[in-house]
Structure formats: C-alpha cells, structure tokens
Design a binder for these strands. Structure first.
Lengths: 227, 227
DNA sequence: TGAAAGCAATGTTAATTAAGGTTAAAGGCG
DNA sequence: CGCCTTTAACCTTAATTAACATTGCTTTCA
C-alpha cells in the first residue's frame, strides 16, 4: 500500500509541483489549499504523515497541528515555511510538529525528511530473532554467548563472545589486531595487547574440536579466521 | 533516570557551553572531542540520543553515524554543522541521521529538536500501554507486580518488579549496572551494588522455569536479558 | 650468501585480583 | 508477626597480570 500524505499548501503553483513530484515517487498525496477542511479529510483518509504550510488562509499551520494532535497523537507532522526564526521553530515543535523545512527547499530534502519521519514513527523494534551462526561443526549464538558442538554447550564470557563475533563476522578475512583491541578494551596499550593473546588462546582451545577451524596469526596485522 | 546524550564536538568552547547548557536542563551529557572512541563509549553508556558534529578530526560525523547504526538501529542521531547544502543534508539522512541543525543554533532549538526526537523514538512503547508483557513462557504485569507461569502467580516486591521491568524493556540488549543502581537506589555505592546481586539472584530464581530466559552477566558493564 | 644471533610480536600457562553470586541471618516497618 | 530489604560471610568465575616459551623476520658477519 502506498504511503499517504496529507499536504496543505495554499500556493497553487508550488503545491502542484510538490504533489506531482511526490506522486512520482510513489506517494499518495491528498492536497488541501486551506485549513478549513483538514480535520475531516484527515479522519477520512487517515494519512501516514502530514505536510503543513504554516501561513495559510483562515487557519495557520500551528493551529491545524494542534487540532490534529488532539485527534491522533502519533502521526508525524512536517511544517513548511518561509519563516526562519528560532521562535517560529519552537512554536512549531510546541504545537506538535516533528520537523521544519524552509522554503525554498529541494524535493530531495523534503522526501528525505518524510522518509526519516516515517521510519522513526514506525520503529517497531527489537526482539530480533535469536540468530545462530554456524562455524564449522559449531553453532554460535552471539545473543546468549553460547558455543555448541554436538549438544555440548559452552558458555562464553562476554569478552570471549565479542571477540568470536568479530572474527566470525569477518571469516576468511583478516581482522586487525588494533580493531579488536579498540572494540574490546577501547585502547591498544601493551597490557591489553597481552590480554588479547590470552583470549585468542582460549578461543583456539574452545574451537579445537573442529580442526577445519583455524585462527591464523598474521604477525603485525591481526588474525585470519579460517573456517 | 536522566536522559543520556552522547555529544561529539571538537570545538572546546562551543562544546563546553552546550554541555553545560544541556546539563542545566537535567540531561546527562557525555562529551567526546573526536571520533576515535565513540563506539566504545556508546556501548558503555548506552545513550538515549546522539548529537554529532560533522566536521571532526579523524572520523567525520557521517562515518560515526553509520557505525552507530550498525550497532543500534534505533537511537536518534542529530547532526550539527555549519554546512548548509542540500547534498550534505541528504548525506546526513543517508548515513542514518534523523535531524540536522545548522550552526550557529540556539540552545532552545537544539533542546526542542532533542525532545522531539526522543518523543518520536519512544512512541511505540507509550502507545502499546500493554498491561502485560510476555517474557518467554511467563506473563509479567508490571502494574500489579505479578509474574505468571501456567496459572501460577508470583507476587514480586516493588524492587523486584522495577528491576524486571528495566531488563525486560531492554531485552536482548545490555542494561547498565549503573543505570539499574541509579534507578533502584539513586546511587551506585558499594553496598547497593552487593544488593543488586541479591536481586538478580532472586529474579534468576523466579525465571528458572523457562530455560530460554537468561540474565547474562557482562562483567564490569551490566546484564544482558536474553529471552 | 647464508647460518647464527638478535629481537619484536605473539603464544601458553598459571597466579592474582576484582567483580559478581549465593545463602542466610539481621534490620526495619506496617 | 510477616514481609521486604539490607548486611554479611563465604563462594565462584572472569579479567588481568606475570613469567616464561615460541615464532618468524631482520641483521650481521664469516
């Protein structure tokens, strides 16, 4: 289903350009030229996002936004205006707007802002399916820090798991020592460098039941995780 | 709990002003002056929102944003910059930014934009004022402090319930020990820290009937609630 | 030119330290 | 009392440091 935009703009020339331009990007655009009818239209078409000019005959954009907010708290609202003062902008946010775009604007910018807001407001989130990575004969669950081979489960510590994740994401390629140090410890001092050696040894030990897996040292550079 | 902002800005003068100004509005601000350590810090403090200058030594804001997006797709990102071209703005959205504020800016504007994005990004939670959260085989009612499995109802104490709520809202991600301590006890002294251990033990006990639920310790950081 | 010495980087194992876990008993409060 | 909650004592595990071994490249000099 197309994304529905409610667009309120009283300049007919600009309005037509914008509407057509949006339609050519596969949005469904309902355009109104004044604030009179906005609420009814809103409830009728139930748009995914609203684009409001601020200076309109009869009712200004702020007022419309406030009315819309009463009806639906969540629909994203973008203001379009020639005004540029901070106080206008504040008034915009206050009245329930979520973005502010200055005239003249490029269509690219408007579209980018529309897509951005749509994404933000839809953010359903997380609950990523616990994905398991296969490493040779092993299965590795980076969410649960579990490394499994033939029903034997080894719990990794968080450092071990992070390191294995890095290597595994970069399998059959070289992971820089320095990148690892930065990610695990935030700096690449001498002591942490010795520390990394210790963790590499541990992982080699955990992974020894599948000889096809190898953590190959590339001296002066990093490790190559061969699977 | 205060809203945490990760702020990356290399101009020390501007940076200090902004940091102090935000702090006076009761934000908790972590400021970095270059792009080196951002990922590390991000994972450590788990901020609610990021404010990135674009022109930075070493790594520019776009690059940082892209890296952050890989780690966490949902955290809102605001760019701050003197550049004004549409293409910069598009690049900003492309790299995962959600808003763009031009230098020089007023603090009022920055704060309005921050609050706006925070609201937008939290919307899903507040809409679904779902009374009951499903956690594996359990149902948890954070209002009534009830944890139910197969018609067996366990009443939690308020501390237990708050802790479980925190973990559960952040499932499959890491909740900082410090955040928990601040929320439950208001400070992170040694004694309360031991106290938290006790509560974690209790929750693990209550949740043991579903082995797919795990509270994984991340030493020195916090807990990862895997469901 | 090539074996041997030198050396920096990395490997291994073990000891140490720090963080967190468990359990139970002691406080505190309606 | 009866319930949290806090404190305490002791236990377990992870992270770090240390001590010593190895590797492979580089330099040196017969």
């Amino acid at each position: 289903m197309k994304t529905k935009i409610l667009y309120v703009e009283d300049e007919p020339f600009l309005g037509r350009i914008v509407k057509e331009s949006l339609e050519s990007r596969d949005f469904e655009v309902n355009m109104l030229t004044d604030g009179n009818d906005v609420l009814q239209q809103f409830e009728k078409i139930n748009p995914d996002i609203c684009v409001l000019d601020i200076m309109l005959p009869v009712k200004d954009g702020y007022t419309i936004a406030r009315e819309l907010r009463k009806v639906k708290a969540t629909v994203p609202i973008i203001f379009v205006t020639a005004k540029v003062q901070t106080e206008d902008l504040l008034k915009g946010f206050e009245s329930g707007g979520n973005d502010y775009i200055r005239k003249p604007f490029s269509m690219e910018e408007l579209i980018a802002r529309i897509n951005n807001l749509l994404q933000l407001s839809q953010r359903p989130k997380s609950i990523s399916a616990a994905e398991v990575t296969v490493i040779g004969k092993y299965e590795f669950n980076p969410q649960r820090y579990e490394l499994k081979i033939e029903d034997k489960v080894k719990k990794l510590s968080s450092r071990e798991a992070t390191l294995l994740t890095m290597l595994s994401e970069n399998r059959n390629a070289t992971t820089n020592r320095k990148d690892i140090l930065m990610k695990l410890w935030g700096d690449d001092s001498f002591f942490n460098s010795r520390n990394l050696d210790v963790y590499i040894t541990k992982l080699r030990d955990y992974l020894k039941d599948d000889p096809s897996i190898e953590i190959i040292t590339i001296k002066g550079v990093g490790y190559h995780f061969a699977v």
